[in-house]
Each structure stands twice: as C-alpha cells, then as structure tokens.
Amino acid sequence: MTCHICTACGTQFEESTEPPSACPVCEDDRQFVPPSGQAWTNMAEISSNHEIKWIEEAKGIHSLQISPNFGIGQRAFLIEGPGGNILWDCLSVVDETSREKIDALGGLAAIAISHPHFYSSMMEWSEAFGEVPVYVHADDGEWVQRSGPALTRWTGEKLELNRATLIRCGGHFAGSSVLYCPWLEDGRGALFTGDTMQVTLDRKYVSFMRSFPNLIPLNARAVKAIGEAVHPYRFEAIYGGFSGRTIKRDGSCVIERSVARYISAIEDPSASQA
C-alpha cells in the first residue's frame, strides 16, 4: 500500500495499491493537468533526488522549500512562537534533516494550511511530529485527499491558534485563509498569505486571483471581502507562498492600496490604459 502523490500539484492521497484514477485538485479550473497527463509518485521516490532547503527569513521565521522544485513549488514556513511553533502551509516531503531542525527549535505545536493547493503531505508531517493537529478551514473540506485523527476542520471567520490568528478571507477558495502573527518583526507583526493574496514581483503590491496558472481573476466583491477580513490587523511584513515573494515594510497599507488598485483596474476600463 502506498500514499500516492500527484506530481503536478504535490497532493498526497490515502493509501492504496494503485494510483488514483484522477487528481480532483488538478482537474479543478484553479489548477491544471499537464499536457503530458496525470502522473504519480510517492515520498520515497521524491526523497531520493530532492531535499528541503531552509532559509532564515527573519528572526523566528524559516522558509522551507523542496529543491529542485516539485509540484507547485511553494514554500512552507516554520514560525517560532510564544505559544509553540507553527508550520504554515506544507510540502510533499518530510525529511530527517527537517525533523531534526524542528525538534531542535522546540518541535511543532500546530500545522495550519492556507488552502487546498498547499495541503500536500500535511498528514505525513503531522505523523512525523506525534500527530500534531492540522488546521484546515471546513469550507474547503471537500478537497482533503488524505485525512486522519489529527485533522481539524475549523469554522467561522477566525481562529486563535497559539497566540496567532487564522483569518478566513475566501476568494481563491471558499476557505482560503491567512495567518497573523503579532509578535514577529520585533512586535510589528507579520501576515502569511499562501495564495489568498500573492506578493507581486515588484514587492510593492499584492494581487488576487481565482486561478493563478489559468489567469482567472476574482470579482470586486471577493477582493473587498479579503481586504475587510484583514483590515483589523496591523502588520509590517507580508510573506507570500513562493520564494522571494516577501514585503518587509508597511504591509497593512500595502494591502489597502492593493485592494483599491485591483478594483479600479477591473471596474474602470481606462485604468488599464493609463
């Protein structure tokens, strides 16, 4: 029996003798099945020629990314916290080096996931650290491909978690969430966004999409709701879901002006021609 992993999106499935007939995550219009077709692997095969690259992004913030890139290529974060360490978002591989580093930093108190594209091998990570609880929003429960007793489907608009706050924003997925950590950046706060909002390449704005690879935008109502969900929180830094996608200053103001710019662009045709 094998827990097969989709090579396109990196999602791990329940144990089975044969690979799944399809990957629902990839067949959804927010993701895609590659032109070469659906393919499957497993953790042992990935581990044979990949490793997890660690970067200390700031005090108490470590990014983790599979190298060379695998699946979607996202980064996860090990966040050191006064209420216990949190793994934000997840990867398809758990390696011994990462286990040792996390144990040396005090272990894990919780795993929290922004949205289904980054579920990856979340239950495998939980098992590696003693069935640590995994938090996904209940609105996205249909996308879970491997479950277990540690999985917690949280509900509502926010959840206090080890002195951090999980905030449901919606948009990209119904349960798309961000993580607010007020103690980071020397007490000025940090927001971890996954794909709920993505830092642009100029590092001056964030933007919003239903599908990033298929270029499907969100409507104005959805983007306003995202802005409103995070408006009560003040933070200096924004950490997006991919390498280098970080804004280090005035994060709260960045999101406010990003919402305004996006809505202007989609509601006023002249804005895109200026």
Rank of each mutant, 00 (worst) to 15 (best):
Ala150Cys: 10
Leu166Trp: 06
Ser114Trp: 01
Arg99Ile: 14
Gly81His: 02
Phe77Met: 11
Gly170Trp: 03
Val132Arg: 12
Ser121Lys: 12
Gly170Glu: 03
Glu160Leu: 09
Ile167Pro: 08
Ala164His: 13
Ser176Thr: 15
Leu166His: 09
Gly130Val: 08
Asp139Leu: 15
Ala112Cys: 15
Gly141Trp: 00
Gln145Asp: 04
His172Ser: 09
Glu131Asn: 13
Leu151Tyr: 02
Ile111His: 02
Asn85Ile: 12
Gly83Met: 01
Ser120Lys: 14
Leu78Val: 05
Asp139Val: 04
His137Tyr: 04
Thr97Ala: 15
Cys169Ile: 07
Trp143Gln: 08
Asp89Phe: 04
Gly171Lys: 03
Ile111Phe: 01
Ala128Arg: 10
Ser98Pro: 02
Val93Arg: 14
Lys158Val: 08
Ser126Thr: 09
Ser120Tyr: 02
Asp103Arg: 15
Arg168Cys: 03
Cys169Phe: 02
Val144Pro: 08
Asn85Leu: 12
Val93Pro: 04
Ala164Leu: 09
Asp89Thr: 15
Ala109Phe: 03
Ala109Lys: 15
Trp125Pro: 06
Lys101Asn: 11
Val93Gln: 14
Lys158His: 11
Asp89Arg: 06
Glu96Asn: 06
Leu161Trp: 00
Ser92Gln: 08
Glu157Ile: 05
Tyr135Ile: 02
His115Pro: 04
Trp125Tyr: 05
